[in-house]
């Protein structure tokens, strides 16, 4: 989308680069659409393609129809949105921190959301309907705390990271404490703690969609500041960027993206850290390309992982976070070793 003006070539090698990048984006989009459709085919029950077809377009109320339309389709859409959100969040934070190891967890969003969510589910289970809301607030509080602690005449990446580690330790300790005190109830929330899209329905799609749409647009508006931040604070300031404002706004958008995701599906790690990296290796560090690709690949990864989570050990569901760590880790290592234009 943003490639239009860039695509007019003036020099051969440069246009080649742009075309290549555009091609990667198109390819990723194609893969994502394919995965989205194919994932409907997979689940703990097996249906033939004909049954799936009938489910999608036939009028009959078959078991396949119920499962494809009311179970797999909303799950796929939730995975689509959450995957994109988390990957974008990670990509933005890596720009904010100018640190390739930054991920949404660093801002305290995940641990804050976890503590809030877990305390409701364990201590006040009767208010369970508030879990998404509380998780979001918890994430926001933790994130605010991190930035409050890190603020000292501006936001310094190192201070954010240190404050993040400290806040995460405190909130994580709280979560551990609760899970020990309420060890008899812990089984019930294990899926949430490890991040699971199981049981997410149209309700969650409707809940997530408006926020995701807003956040996606906001994230895409961050391309320029994110790119400038990559050049270093002084260079970014020199080019007329208000670095502190940009850091704060980008962090807020990133925290929001992570917050809405965590509050709906629980704690899913890995995407926010790995996907931006993979994208840099594939397409370079220009956020104009990297950010959209992050969104696409984040969705692709989560949709695939969720299809695997409900298929591999069927009929038992696995938390999708586990699948991603097991499959994504080695793949990431492979990419790192193979290298690319971007070397860490």
């Amino acid at each position: 989308m943003t490639t239009r003006s860039e695509a007019q070539p003036t020099a051969a090698p440069r246009s080649l680069r742009v075309v290549k990048k555009a091609l990667v984006l198109v390819l990723a989009l194609g893969l994502l659409l394919t995965a989205a459709v194919v994932s409907l085919r997979f689940g703990s029950l097996s249906f033939s393609t004909a049954e799936i077809w009938q489910a999608l377009f036939g009028g009959e109320e078959t078991l396949a129809k119920i499962i494809v339309l009311d179970v797999r389709l909303p799950r796929m859409l939730v995975a689509l949105m959450v995957g994109a959100n988390l990957a974008l969040s990670g990509a933005l934070l890596q720009a904010v921190m100018r640190n390739p190891l930054a991920d949404p967890g660093l801002t305290g969003v995940s641990t804050g959301a976890a503590l809030a969510g877990v305390s409701i589910m364990l201590v006040f289970p009767q208010w369970g309907a508030l879990v998404p809301f509380a998780a979001f607030i918890g994430g926001a509080i933790a994130c605010g705390l991190v930035f409050l602690l890190a603020w000292k005449r501006g936001l310094d990446p190192i201070r954010i990271i240190l404050a993040g580690v400290a806040v995460n330790a405190v909130f994580g300790g709280g979560t551990s404490l609760l899970s020990i005190l309420y060890s008899d109830r812990i089984q019930g929330i294990l899926m949430w703690l490890n991040g699971s899209i199981a049981g997410r329905s149209w309700h969650h799609v409707r809940l997530l969609a408006p926020y995701t749409a807003v956040a996606l647009v906001a994230a895409m508006l961050c391309i320029k500041p994110a790119n400038l931040l990559q050049l270093g604070d002084d260079a970014a300031r020199n080019l007329g960027l208000n670095v502190n404002v940009a850091r704060t706004v980008l962090s807020f958008i990133a925290a929001f993206l992570a917050g809405i995701s965590v509050s709906t599906v629980g704690l899913i790690g890995f995407i926010g850290l790995i996907i931006p990296h993979v994208c840099r290796l594939l397409i370079g560090s220009d956020y104009k390309f990297m950010l959209p690709l992050s969104a696409l690949l984040g969705s692709l990864l989560l949709i695939t992982a969720d299809a695997a989570a409900r298929t591999v050990f069927r009929p038992v569901e696995l938390p999708v976070g586990i699948i991603m760590a097991v499959v994504g880790g080695p793949f990431f290592l492979y990419l790192l070793r193979k290298g690319g234009t971007y070397r860490v």
Partner: peptide, 29 residues
């Protein structure tokens, strides 16, 4: 930024930026 430009001692260039891509950023202001 349109009137004045400062070059610091140390620069962080994203590893895959070409010279032209870097210079393009000069037009941002």
């Amino acid at each position: 930024a349109k009137k004045l430009s400062i070059l610091s001692q140390v620069h962080a260039t994203p590893p895959d930026f070409t010279v032209r891509e870097l210079v393009n950023y000069g037009r941002v202001p």
